[in-house]
């Protein structure tokens, strides 16, 4: 029943490559902000049913004790949600790298997470959109959850879709144990649009 949503091996490969290219731009911006070398990951792709969203996310981001997540919705040729997830150490590391004092208050901390997330989401998704000749607009970033388990991040009962495509990339800093994940979620109708955009893209090669 979800056969028409599944990506062919070629589409999956192309999406991985397009994501990889876009991620390079995002990683470069993060490196500039943090003045540190950023290691890029091989993008991971999965299709999940709404009921299994927590498992789907955990498979891609692992199961750190607790995470803080920032979300941004996107609209246009493709529609979905982008989420940037930091574990507890990640939040502290980020503040530390930016030269914030130890007694950082919650508000400044949150603003930093929002800013960094906004840069990563914008660079990565605009990069993908540009390669696929799509147009996207973004909502302002908001804190989705603070210090929650991955399994509690999304309540499956509040979801308005049945199936979604998940694309995960992560950025790691070599100098310290910092990782943040960027997870993009697109519900079924965007999967179909994406599949045909990937086909068009591949026709050029």
């Amino acid at each position: 029943m979800i056969d028409h949503l599944l990506l062919t091996p070629d589409q999956r490969d192309a999406l991985q490559e397009v994501t990889n290219i876009a991620m390079g731009q995002a990683g470069s911006q993060l490196a500039q902000i943090l003045e540190s070398f950023v290691q890029l990951s091989v993008p991971r792709i999965n299709i999940t049913e709404s009921a299994a969203i927590s498992t789907g996310i955990a498979q891609l981001v692992g199961t750190p004790q607790s995470i803080t997540a920032v979300r941004q919705a996107f609209n246009g040729t493709l529609r979905g949600e982008a989420m940037v997830m930091y574990d507890q150490d990640g939040c502290r590391d980020l503040a530390d790298l930016m030269g914030y004092e130890d007694d950082l208050d919650g508000a400044a901390d949150r603003e930093l997470l929002l800013d960094v997330s906004n840069v990563l989401v914008g660079a990565c998704l605009n990069g993908i959109a540009e390669l696929l000749q799509a147009k996207l607009s973004f909502s302002a970033p908001t804190i989705m959850a603070e210090n929650v388990e991955v399994g509690r991040l999304i309540n499956p009962q509040q979801l308005t879709w049945n199936y979604a495509l998940l694309v995960e990339v992560h950025f790691t800093l070599e100098v310290r144990d910092f990782t943040c994940h960027l997870l993009t979620l697109m519900p079924e109708e965007s999967i179909l649009t994406l599949k045909s955009a990937l086909d068009t893209f591949m026709e050029n090669f």
Binding site: N20, I21, A22, M23, G24, Q25, G27, S28, A31, F37, V38, L40, L131
Partner: peptide, 25 residues
């Protein structure tokens, strides 16, 4: 040939003997 456009990535591969760095796409 890489999507990693950080100047440090470029520098590293040069040090490791690559003759050139081409950005993707």
């Amino acid at each position: 040939v890489s999507a990693d456009i950080q100047p440090m990535a470029r520098e590293r591969v040069r040090q490791l003997g690559a003759i050139a760095f081409v950005k993707k796409p």
